[in-house]
């Protein structure tokens, strides 16, 4: 019996352009698997953003639009509402990095959550600006060395990082907000189930659903893929606690 095959929502003959060992590939695969399982491929419009996630439309076999940097949730709002105004219910999700979602786009992101836009946002948190070569981002942790915090992030000098999933959980319009990781099989399975839940909440019309995925960036962290996962397990998941911070069904 075939227990795994390439998800049909992954484009045939496409190869991810991410660096070796990058968790982006795992996250996208999970998104594709969930789209398959929920049979959403043909009613989905995905919103790509700027950064490593920009080439989404080369990998996912769904309708896709690229948004200006940080504006993915605003673009998704427009798509979802425009279809609704035409009497159509489409599935709309964004796939963004932490810089895109929580720094340059935090206004668009938070207000989409506050309005309870019935969309889903997936945010890949790898604690730096990956595509430009590993600069300090909104989620870089205290002490983290990046190309623009060469002495380590210092709270007096650089200020504090943001805990995105907890912020989204504070928004009344959010139906679901969780943080997951991908550093081992157990967490990957949990991440997939969490993404599925977030997608299902949109299908049920419950409002803004959000999954922050703690992800590795071996190239810019200057660690092997294996050591990157160890760092997430031992350090990052202590700063960025894994779990569900808002679940409208449990309130």
């Amino acid at each position: 019996m075939q227990v795994f095959s390439t998800p049909k929502t992954i484009k045939e003959n496409s190869s991810f352009t991410f660096c070796p060992g990058c968790d982006h590939g795992v996250a996208l695969k999970l998104v594709a698997m969930v789209l398959d399982e929920l049979n959403l491929q043909e009613q989905t419009i995905a919103v790509a953003s700027s950064g490593c996630s920009v080439l989404l439309y080369d990998f996912l076999d769904v309708d896709c639009i690229e948004s200006p940097h940080g504006r993915a949730c605003a673009v998704a709002t427009g798509i979802k509402r425009a279809h609704k105004a035409q009497g159509n219910n489409k599935f709309v999700f964004t796939y963004q990095g932490d810089g895109d979602f929580a720094s340059i786009g935090i206004s668009e992101s938070l207000h989409s959550a506050l309005r309870g836009e019935n969309i889903t946002a997936i945010c890949i948190n790898n604690t730096n600006y990956g595509m430009t070569g590993g600069q300090m981002g909104p989620t870089s942790t205290l002490g983290q060395i990046t190309s623009t915090s060469p002495l380590g992030r210092n709270k007096e000098y650089h200020g504090f990082p943001i805990k995105t999933a907890e912020h989204i959980a504070l928004c009344d319009g959010a139906s679901f907000s969780a943080r997951v990781a991908l550093y081992d099989v157990k967490n990957i399975i949990n991440a997939k189930n969490t993404i599925k839940k977030a997608f299902e909440y949109q299908k049920e019309g419950l409002g803004f659903s959000f999954v922050e995925i703690l992800s590795s960036c071996p190239t810019n962290w200057k660690l092997s893929p294996q050591d990157s996962h160890k760092k997430i397990e031992e350090e990052l998941s202590k700063t960025y606690k894994l779990g569900i911070f808002k679940d409208i069904k449990n309130e």
């Binding site: 419009i45 504006r71 605003a74 998704a76 709002t77 427009g78 609704k84």
Partner: peptide, 28 residues
């Protein structure tokens, strides 16, 4: 009329919502 109207968070939000909505073929 059950049409799409959003009091956007900013003009940046507004024009990007317009960008998304326009991709659906709606008059925006």
């Amino acid at each position: 009329r059950n049409l799409a109207y959003v009091c956007a968070e900013s003009e940046i939000g507004a024009i990007n919502m317009a960008l998304g909505a326009a991709s659906t073929g709606a008059k925006v």
